[in-house]
């Protein structure tokens, strides 16, 4: 059968959601941000809530998330997205509000805002993309940089004695009674993407039911910052990031997974 006969509108089984704009993504080739954006927007589309969804973009690689997500969005100061989202959600409690943040934004400069939004049990969704490095500013050490991992500000590897430990923010906030659904996912394989999308769906359903804060960490790659090609970066992530940041649900229905 000729390809032209297959590629017809009636045979379409998958295409980019209309909630992603046609602007070319500003991310490096192979970066997980694009996938994380897309599945977030797919969930919003599938739930039919795009007219009632307001996103909050961070500072970091995904600062321009509002260029790519075709919904109303506010760009927050570095680390302040959970506070910005709180302001929106408290004044529009019937809307769906989510933040999209990287590890420097969420776990370093915005640690306090993250902790307190979680602790108050704000009915928002936080999507947390953790690639263990500062991507936008050129590969500096993040709070989630692994022990011994090289970055431009830990050029000889992260020295735990002087630079501290990688921060497991997701485990930390799971301890707070305000969080209802806490999970860690990845987007490096088709199966992982499908699982991560299901988790994001649960997160938005949690918000719909006003059960508390839903937090989805996505462990991702940074092939530029890690100085690898995209496929190798994904493999390195599996071998090195996943042991320290294991995938899976951490808190479901308000209960910690044993």
């Amino acid at each position: 059968m000729d390809i032209k006969e297959i590629i017809k509108p009636e045979n379409l089984v998958y295409q980019k959601t209309k909630l992603m704009t046609d602007a070319p993504l500003s991310y490096c080739p192979g970066c997980g941000h694009g996938t994380a954006h897309r599945i977030t927007m797919e969930v919003v589309e599938e739930m039919g809530i795009w007219e009632d969804t307001i996103g909050v973009a961070p500072v970091g690689c995904s600062v321009l998330a509002y260029d790519f997500m075709n919904i109303d969005m506010t760009q927050a100061a570095h680390g302040r997205a959970p506070a910005v989202a709180t302001g929106i959600k408290r004044t529009w409690p019937e809307k769906f509000v989510f933040t999209y943040q990287g590890d420097g934004d969420l776990a370093a400069i915005g640690g306090n805002e993250t902790l307190h939004a979680c602790n108050r049990g704000e009915n928002i969704v936080i999507i947390f993309v953790n690639n263990g490095i500062y991507g936008m500013t050129g590969g500096q050490m993040a709070p989630t940089t692994l022990p011994g991992m090289k970055s431009s500000t830990s050029p000889y590897g992260r020295d735990i004695a002087t630079m501290g430990h990688p921060l497991k923010m997701t485990e930390l906030i799971a301890q707070l009674p305000g969080t209802y659904f806490v999970t860690r996912q990845a987007v490096h394989t088709p199966a992982a993407v499908r699982k991560a999308k299901k988790a994001i769906r649960i997160a938005f359903e949690t918000q719909r039911e006003k059960k508390g804060l839903a937090f989805v960490e996505i462990v991702s790659n940074c092939n530029s910052g890690w100085k690898m090609n995209p496929v190798d970066a994904n493999n390195w992530m599996v071998d090195n990031m996943f042991p320290y940041f294991p995938l899976g649900d951490i808190k479901v229905n308000g209960e910690l997974i044993k």
Partner: peptide, 30 residues
């Protein structure tokens, strides 16, 4: 690009994992 188009089963895996969302997938039952 499709080097072996005849082997495609339209499973959508490539499109699902594509960070830039540049792949559309089509499928027919013969």
């Amino acid at each position: 690009y499709m080097e072996k188009p005849e082997a495609c089963i339209g499973c959508t895996n490539c499109a699902v994992v594509c960070p830039d969302g540049v792949i559309s997938v089509y499928k027919v039952k013969m």
